[in-house]
Amino acid sequence: MKITLTVNGAAYPLDVEPRRILADVLREDCGLTGTHLGCEHGICGACTVLVDGEAVRACLMFAVQCDGSSVRTVEGLAAPDGEPHPLQRAFSAEHALQCGFCTPGFLMVAAGALEADPNIGDDPERVDGLVGSNICRCTGYEPIRRAILRAAREQQGDRDGVNR
């Protein structure tokens, strides 16, 4: 089946079997291997990407469902000039990753929420809900929570600074 995915702003015209899940198409057809498969049944969240701005499990969507949609992966998180996303800097600063396998999924869950609601840093319970969306076996999660809050507050601070 012929589809077009827009991934991180670039159009990918593809011919894919309907059964191929979005994560496999991103990894193999688009060559974007930053999206990892940790469980392939929607639990661990390592494959989380943004589809039209919303965080979804890329193992629980077929790529054909995303025909015409805009997909964002961890490769598209940094600015075009390579400047890291605040979340990327915050994850490093808080040591919120060890093996790094689950990391792209946590980054995308957080990125989706942060972009939808820049004030999420004011609502620690919602941040808890985000951290509680995925599985990490190395960090024990707490550093991930701190990293998301740090990035959220940093963004808020930047904006407030501009507004002043």
Binding site: G34, Q88, G100, F101, T103
Partner: peptide, 11 residues
């Protein structure tokens, strides 16, 4: 690892 450029075997 934070920019999607890690390389695991499946990659």
């Amino acid at each position: 690892l934070l920019t999607g450029r890690g390389r695991f075997v499946a990659d």
